[in-house]
Design a protein around this nucleic acid. Structure first.
Length: 460
RNA sequence: GCGCCUGUAGCUCAGUUGGAUAGAGCAGCGGACUUCUAAUCCGCAGGCCGCAGGUUCGAAUCCUGCCAGGCGCGCCA
């Protein structure tokens, strides 16, 4: 989950027609504001995106949705924070809101907005509202820009505010009411989630008439289910794990089975620099931005590195280490295998030997135990992807590709000592057989890297 | 106090239905480039798999209890 206190940006992938259309593997061969993604959650977009890619690859229809919590207090607080920073330029004693957002990005937003709009004639309420609206739009723009750079695309951007405006919330409330799961207490409206596995009942509408955040979430999920999605996958920061039972309980109260919704909880990343831990406070923090990470190591390396750990395992990241990792990142190991194979294919072509589209009659030429190892590993690819579609553990793909690349590199190096063990040899039939083998590896690696959102260079 | 997650090599992490001598990368040491790309390969060294019990023919994996760290327990978002 991206989490900037003013926003809670929920990424929801809903998978429709779970398991209906399956493709066969064999058909597959074929000083402006900077982005303020907090590091603790920067790993979410790559792993979620890869998961989507794998699910699609396996034949599922996937809709990627980015849900923005832009209703109510949070946005107003954003506006007040920006406004306060503006006022402080001329009056350092201007009071900063108690629960305001302290990050430096607020200063940037304040500067930018101050240049664009003259707020001096506005009364405070109007000014705050304008700051809130502009600040929100600017942050969303930044997020979108960063996602583009990260090669991540969402099909749908939905807003909590729109959810309110559409009347869906009232509708949802009625529907829960009709099922007899609501009651009033001390002026608030409660939902009986405790009857469906939650610790206690929850407030859905506060005594001041405002809906809670939870209310929007219920409406949101029910709407997803109503529209026919057979599976929903939410990706949240691990600090929200306590929230899962109540959402599931609310869904269960509408007869939606517990396993309809999967929530992946991404553990927090601890960041180290110069031997010191950088505490990533949600609102006061020294942010390390996603932009900086991308500048430092590049998109390929950044995406790969986030997918080398299981999502429920915490990761310590040493900035000094990741900065020098640009030449040393495991992604290059896999990419290099791909580039090397391309080089072999070019070499063969220069000698007039093309890659055949079948291996009939020459497959027995492949007899080395290293060749068998490669074939065995390649054959595991489809099952691996199916497994990942079920377990939602995308990190296994990086380990698989590293393993496959290793089996190729080992094979390749034999040819350095003994020219008879090269792919391109004097024996044309043997060469053709080995060409098919390595171009198979090339295809699997290219597919795997594409699923990771990583490029597969032909030369390095 | 209660709940969830984590604890595996010096460091970062894999280890998915319980199965043979527990793996990889980085860091360390020693080797391999007149050759299809050395961003590679080969070898050495490095482990009471947090601790203690239990289940099992067999446990890093399952159960219980501890210890340590992270996170969460509002008419907050």
């Amino acid at each position: 989950m991206f989490w900037i206190r003013s926003f809670r940006l929920k990424m929801i992938m809903a998978v429709a027609k779970w398991g209906v259309t399956r493709k066969s593997w064999w058909n597959l061969s074929a000083p402006t504001p900077r982005v303020r993604f907090i590091w603790v959650t920067a790993e979410v977009p790559p792993s979620a995106d890869t998961l989507c890619r794998i699910l699609s690859f396996c034949g599922h229809q996937v809709v990627r949705e980015f849900y923005v919590n832009d209703a109510g207090l949070q946005i107003r607080m954003l506006g007040e924070s920006i406004w306060a920073r503006m006022k402080q330029k001329e009056n350092p004693n201007f009071v900063f809101p108690e629960n305001g957002y302290h990050g430096d990005y607020i200063l940037d937003l304040a500067d930018t907005i101050a240049k664009e709009i003259d707020l001096s004639s506005k009364n405070p309420d109007e000014a705050v509202a304008l700051c809130a609206q502009d600040g929100k739009e600017m942050m969303l723009t930044e997020i979108q820009r960063a996602l583009d750079r990260f090669r991540i695309n969402f099909d749908v951007w939905s807003s909590e505010e729109d959810l309110h405006a559409s009347g869906l919330l009232d509708q949802t409330l009625d529907s829960i009411q009709a099922k007899g799961h609501l009651y009033d207490r001390e002026g608030a409206v409660w939902i009986k989630t405790s009857q469906f596995g939650d610790d206690k009942d929850r407030v859905i509408r506060k005594s001041d008439g405002q809906y809670t955040y939870f209310a929007s979430d219920i409406a949101y999920h029910l709407e997803k289910h109503r529209r026919g999605f057979t599976k929903a996958i939410n990706i949240w920061g691990a600090d929200h794990h306590g929230y899962v039972p109540r959402v599931k309980a609310a869904l269960l109260s509408h007869g939606i089975p517990e396993n309809w919704l999967s929530v992946l909880l991404i553990q927090l990343v601890k960041l180290w620099e110069n031997g010191q831990e950088l505490r990533m406070s949600k609102r006061a923090g020294s942010f390390v931005t996603l932009q900086e990470l991308l500048d430092e190591v590049g998109v390929d390396a950044a995406r790969f590195v986030f997918l080398t750990k299981s999502h429920d395992s915490p990761l310590d990241v040493d900035m000094d280490l990741i900065k020098k990792q640009d030449s040393d990142n495991p992604v290059y190991y896999v990419q290099y295998a791909h580039a090397r194979i391309c080089s072999i294919i070019r070499k063969a072509a220069s000698e007039g030997i093309a890659v055949l589209d079948h291996i009939d009659g020459i497959s027995e030429k492949l007899a080395l135990k290293e060749e068998m190892a490669i074939i065995r590993t390649m054959s595991e690819f489809p099952a691996l992807l199916e497994d990942i579609s079920k377990t939602l553990e995308a990190h296994r793909l990086t380990y698989y590709l590293t393993h496959l690349a290793a089996s190729f590199h080992r094979y390749f190096n034999m040819g350095l000592k003994n020219s008879e063990l090269r792919v391109v040899t004097e024996d044309k039939t043997l060469t053709q057989a080995r060409l098919i083998l390595v171009s198979g590896v090339k295809i699997v690696i290219a597919n795997g890297l594409r699923l990771l959102g990583v490029s597969a260079p032909e030369k390095m």
